[in-house]
């Protein structure tokens, strides 16, 4: 039990410190690295309470895919070089701090409203008395409720993700002129007759091919 709580405190300390470092660190890429560290330590906490499936999915989805794309974008945009601007919190003479404070206050009160109106399932309040069966692995038990009781919600969230994906593609897709695309079928089905042409070149004039 001692080792358990030692590890718990280590991981939660790392999680909190790295969460603070995400906002404090001057270099944007470092912020993303701290975010990744945060994700990893939180997934360790998940594993420690026995929710190994959630922990692993957290690693695969957030660290393995989302944060990679995040890092990708931050590196490509070269936001790291704007650290001076960000940190003096000045942008063209104005300052970010009032706006930032306002937004965070609004979010804070929204959270209070949401959590204050939260209705708990009665047996959740004395959750220590709930019988947790150790026979069924938690992958199976998540599957048992996700694909039966909550199938509609599950599919709706899938739909929302699909819509978001299509939206992103529609917003960024541009038809550009003059793009050369390779078509394997075209390449392979080319015959000698259409590929090779014998052209009689006129003297001092040459041949125009692409005409």
């Amino acid at each position: 039990m001692i080792a358990h709580s030692v590890f718990f405190y280590i991981f939660s300390l790392i999680a909190i410190v790295s969460a603070v470092m995400v906002t404090v660190s001057k270099n944007t890429v470092h912020s993303v690295f701290f975010l990744i560290l945060d994700f990893i330590s939180i997934s360790c906490l998940f594993i420690m309470i026995g929710a190994e499936f959630l922990g692993m999915i957290m690693l695969i989805v957030y660290v393995g895919a989302v944060a990679v794309l995040f890092l990708f974008v931050v590196m490509m945009l070269n936001v790291a070089e704007q650290k001076g601007q960000w940190f003096s919190s000045r942008w063209d003479g104005g300052t970010h701090i009032p706006v930032g404070l306002l937004v965070s206050l609004i979010i804070f009160f929204e959270l209070i409203i949401v959590i204050g109106g939260w209705k708990y399932k009665p047996d959740l309040l004395n959750s220590l008395s709930i019988n947790i069966s150790t026979e069924v692995t938690n992958t199976r038990s998540i599957g048992n409720v996700l694909y039966t009781d909550y199938i509609l919600l599950f599919q709706i969230s899938g739909m929302i993700l699909l819509v978001a994906m299509i939206g992103a593609i529609v917003l960024t897709y541009r038809e550009r002129a003059g793009v050369k695309r390779q078509s394997y079928v075209k390449q392979i089905s080319r015959e000698r007759d259409e590929g090779v042409d014998l052209i009689e070149a006129e003297r001092n004039k040459g041949v125009k091919i692409d005409a």
Partner: peptide, 10 residues
Amino acid sequence: INVGILYLFA
């Protein structure tokens, strides 16, 4: 572990 393949994948 129960989720060995997920661990490998992660």
